[in-house]
Nucleic acid binder design. Structure first.
Length: 470
RNA sequence: UCCCCUAUAGCUCAAUGGUAGAGCGGGCGGCUGUUAACCGCCAGGUUGCUGGUUCGAGUCCAGCUGGGGGAGCCA
């Protein structure tokens, strides 16, 4: 008797034929035949396909237990792997023993029925939704993409840097942050001036959850040359859209001795590597997404892996938009050089004009962050966004300002406190070097790859405004 | 946070201001090497919450809460 996953049985079914095997999993459906047997469809999550166990009524517990199995029951099935007499699977198990490990106490109210459910409903039962086809597939796709990220960087000599989750600087700039505190909210200590006395807080200062590992990882890039972070990130923005989470995962590489062009190439190579891995390793799950979620998802991935991304200067993007307007294309918001592109503008460029991901580069300095490197024209910075059809911004990156005088000028312009950035400025004083990096939203990548419509269904337990269940 | 839509059985949805229904799922029975199985019967509801209009509210109105779509912010 050997223990086997469903994936291994299907992957090497010839080798398993005739063998006594033990499989453990959860029942999807049970179909009875009065020829004296039941078909128990079970899944252990190791692959997309469920496994058919044929249970003859000669089993000791057939009438008392097997015939009463319903969706969700946990079972251990033992028996011989035989060629299937029916269609739909190459092999199946002729069971000699089925042990019911865990019953479903009330089948009538088991939340996951063998029928299509809405994703909104499944979010309310997030503890059980991984047992569905869709979320099982999402889980395996996430894993595949995450492993591909680490492989990609490892193969290229990058080091994975574990930047802090808790940050003591309020200088990260990228929007609202979650406070981290052990102070008693009902009895907040005050300074003589009446403000909150954070010196009595756990860290002796005000602290928050990170909104980006970038500033920290830049320090390691200026030592180990090629580094990246891959971890959770937190934004306290009150964003209620299908593309925003309060807690999400982000990949942020940072490369020393590099310019914006190398940064953009790295982002393109990474995305292609991730999607190639997905096409090679998760064909079963992708087929499901293509069948039931988004017809074009496999073709889209194959096209993306094979074609180079469109590179476009911000100024050219504006000119394309203005040309479209001149031809009668209507937009809700006006377009002119210097304005931040609206979602509708980004969608036009990537979905209508190009039909592929677009790398938009060299944005006006006034709409970008302080740390982005000033271009020689004095009015644009070396920033790049990658816009993907159906998603919008999937990557945001830049070459960093490595010249201290230029950085200080930008900090002053934006009225930021230079002292708060003392260690970030130190990097520019001690062996400064041109460097660049970007942030890739992991869940947005999952959405893009699978065609899932809502980012809340691309992460096991979504956190969004007013929602932190489970 | 703003605009729009929405909330009915375990799930997906019906129901002109007039006795709340169907399909799926569940239970029981029948049939069948079945595969979203099929056929019959049965059970299952304070119509999201609070208030209002009305002889009468699932239906109309107000507020609240949750969900969805769009926008902003961004990954």
């Amino acid at each position: 008797m050997i223990d086997a996953s469903v994936a291994s049985i299907f992957r090497e079914h010839a080798a398993h034929l005739g063998k006594q095997v033990r499989v453990k999993g959860w029942v999807r459906t049970r179909r009875d035949s009065k020829a004296g047997l039941s078909f128990v469809q079970m899944s252990d999550g190791s692959c997309f396909d469920a496994f058919q166990v044929v249970a003859p009524n000669s089993l000791a517990n057939y009438a008392s237990e097997v015939a009463k199995l319903t969706a969700g029951c946990a079972v251990v099935a033992e028996g011989e792997i035989v060629p299937s007499q029916g269609k739909g699977q190459p092999v199946e198990m002729q069971a000699s023993r089925i042990e019911v490990v865990g019953w479903v106490e009330n089948p009538d109210t088991y939340p996951i029925q063998p029928k299509p459910h809405t994703f909104e409903y499944l979010r309310e039962v997030a503890h059980l939704r991984p047992r569905t086809n869709t979320f099982g597939a999402i889980g395996r796709v996430r894993h595949c993409l995450a492993m591909a990220v680490h492989r990609f960087f490892h193969e290229r000599g990058f080091f994975w840097i574990h930047t802090p989750i808790i940050t003591g600087s309020d200088c990260e700039g990228a929007g609202q942050m979650f406070r981290v505190s052990t102070l008693d909210l009902a009895n907040i200590p005050r300074t003589p001036e009446g403000t909150v006395d954070f010196s009595q807080d756990f860290f002796g200062r005000e602290t928050h959850l990170t909104v980006s590992g970038q500033l920290n990882v830049e320090t390691w890039a200026c030592a180990l040359s090629k580094v990246y972070t891959f971890g959770p990130t937190f934004r306290a923005e009150n964003s209620n859209t299908a593309r925003h989470l309060a807690e999400f995962w982000m990949i942020e590489p940072e490369i020393a001795f590099a310019t914006l062009l190398e940064d953009a190439q790295l982002a393109e190579d990474l995305l292609k590597y991730m999607f190639r891995a997905l096409l090679e390793e998760r064909g079963d799950d992708l087929k499901f997404f293509a069948d039931r979620i988004d017809k074009g998802c496999i073709a889209r991935l194959e096209a993306l892996v094979g074609a180079s991304f469109e590179r476009m200067d911000y100024g050219d993007g504006i000119r394309h938009l203005e040309a479209a307007i001149a031809k009668g294309r209507k937009f809700e918001f006006p377009v002119s050089w210097g304005c931040d592109l609206q979602s509708e503008h980004e969608r036009y460029l990537t979905e209508e004009l190009v039909g592929r991901p677009v790398i938009l580069m060299n944005y006006p300095k006034d709409i970008k962050a302080f740390y982005m490197r000033m271009n020689d024209d004095g009015r644009t910075v070396a920033a790049m966004d990658i816009l993907a059809p159906g998603i919008g911004e999937i990557v945001g990156g830049s070459q960093r300002e490595e010249r201290l005088d230029m950085l200080d000028r930008r900090l002053d312009e934006m009225k930021l406190d230079k002292d708060a950035y003392w260690w970030y400025r130190d990097l520019r004083r001690y062996g400064t070097v041109p460097h660049a990096g970007f942030g890739l939203g992991f869940e947005r990548t999952v959405i893009y790859a699978t065609g899932m419509a809502n980012i809340r269904d691309a992460i096991p337990f979504p956190r969004t405004p007013k929602t932190c269940d489970f």
